[in-house]
Design a protein around this nucleic acid. Structure first.
Length: 418
RNA sequence: GUGGGCGUAGCUCAACCUGGUUAGAGCUCCAGAUUGUGGAUCUGGAGGUUGUGGGUUCAAAUCCCAUCGUCCACCCCA
């Protein structure tokens, strides 16, 4: 084969697109039900937008970005996530204003250079929201409930909400100090990655899965005990909010998100049906990012759903999901040039009348045309041959019942619309 | 970036371990049985540079190396 899709990318083929369309439709419907408006941003941005917001030492920035120079030598990067671009666009277009809540949603492709595996591709798709202008914990609750509502509507259950607070600019530095002093004498006996994390971002030590490291991590101070009063009450209010909506959650003190801009609330929604890459949704609060990007001081919250993973779950859940390909209502079978001409006009008229229709263009035998119509799941077949032309009538066959009748050419379309 | 599994017809796979005529089967597709009627059945047919490149050998789908792709896991995340 001469050309194949680049590594880590996939063609979404016709028998799959209906699943995708269904998911996208459900997302849009619910986003709009919660009063979010769609925003579409470029798929590439200035590289700095991502390095600044996500953080230099994060995996995404340090090894996963598709970065290139354009013809004028500008460094651009295919978006690895959508929060930074939306923040940029919102500031640039003055969407964020004082005393106003701005609620935006997006659906689109993201790009990260990683080794592909189950539920992980280099081009993947996310649907998500960003809310600007409120530090009210109710926003966090609304966001999480919206995500759960989407999964619910898609028929996905067995999900778990993992919740944590990563603190704010006031309490996080304090926590860093505590963590550093706690691990100071232990770090040498921990794994190589943790030793790096100790220098670059000690918070991530908590996320290490090495059994050896976990022994130490278990005894490490939990961030929830060091949170400042504001973060603490915020976190508690998010929890009571979730409880009042009867959303089940699990406080996970080790949940640390891989992007540096998060403050206070961080959450993930994980599925048991996915393999190692089990997060279907992730997000949280980022109350300082807008200001860091030169906008007004603005509290913000957002999440992103991984659509490939949703597709995986839906495929594995629905045992025999019928592809539900759209079928034409009418298939016109013709024999001979004259019949083909008449048939072509009828197909055209049918379409004009809103009836989905198709016909044979391969000059196949009638039998073969019937077979094609059957494979296409056409409801009716209109047969036109020499006999019919003479009588100025066609044969209309109902493919479900097998019954057929002679009918005038023009009459046939009326029959189908009525 | 690291480790392991796998690349054979459009699809799912067999033959590989133990090298040996013309690389098989099911499904799909095409034709016929049915001179102009789909689904079921039967008969026939088409379809392959065995991922690619090199090596070993009288002989390679089979053994070896490389490379690309894919899958799974680590890391991390959606």
């Amino acid at each position: 084969m001469k050309y194949t899709a680049p590594r880590g990318t996939k063609d979404i083929l016709p028998d799959e697109t209906s699943v995708w369309q269904g998911i996208e439709k459900t997302c849009r419907k619910l986003f709009e039900l919660y009063n979010y408006s769609e925003i579409r941003t470029p798929v590439f941005e200035q590289t700095e937008l991502f390095t600044r917001s996500i953080g230099q030492t994060t995996d995404i920035v340090s090894k996963e970005m598709y970065t290139f120079l354009d013809r004028k030598g500008r460094s651009l990067t295919l978006r690895p996530e959508e929060t930074a671009p939306v923040v940029r666009a919102a500031i640039e277009n003055n969407l964020i204003q004082k005393d106003k809540l701005t609620k935006l949603y997006y659906i689109g492709p993201m790009f990260r250079y990683e080794r592909p595996q189950m539920g992980r591709q280099r081009q993947f798709h996310q649907a998500g929201i960003e809310v600007f202008g409120s530090d009210n914990p109710a926003i966090d609750v609304e966001g999480i409930s919206l995500a759960m509502q989407i999964f619910n509507r898609l028929g996905i259950s067995n999900l778990e909400v993992d919740l944590n607070s990563v603190g704010c600019n006031k309490c996080r530095p304090e926590y860093f100090i505590r963590i550093k002093s706690f691990f100071k004498d232990k770090i040498k006996s921990m794994c190589e990655d943790c030793q790096k994390r100790f220098e670059t971002n000690p918070l991530r030590i908590l996320d290490c899965k090495e059994p050896n490291c976990q022994k130490f991590i278990e005894k490490a101070p939990a961030i929830k005990d060091i949170l400042c009063p504001e973060c603490k009450t915020h976190f508690e209010k998010v929890i009571t909010g979730l409880e009042s909506l009867k959303i089940k959650y699990k406080v996970n003190n080790r949940l640390v998100r891989g992007l540096d801009y998060y403050t206070c609330t961080a959450f993930e929604i994980v599925s048991g049906q996915l393999g190692a890459q089990n997060a279907v949704c992730g997000g949280g609060r980022y109350d300082t990012l807008v200001e860091e990007f030169g906008g007004p001081k603005t509290a913000a919250f957002g999440f992103a759903i991984g659509l490939e993973r949703v597709v995986e779950i839906i495929k594995s859940t629905k045992s025999n999901n019928q592809p539900s390909k759209q079928a034409p209502s009418l298939y016109v079978a013709t024999m001979g040039d004259e019949a083909e001409k008449i048939g072509f006009e009828l197909v055209s008229k049918a379409r004009g009348a809103g009836i989905s229709a198709d016909m044979d263009y391969l000059r196949k035998s009638l039998k073969a045309q019937m077979k094609t119509a059957d494979n296409e799941k056409a409801k009716y077949v209109l047969i036109i041959g020499d006999d019919e032309i003479k009588k100025n009538k066609a044969i209309l066959k109902n493919m479900q019942t097998g019954g057929q009748e002679e009918i005038a050419f023009d009459e046939a379309l009326h029959r189908l619309t009525s």
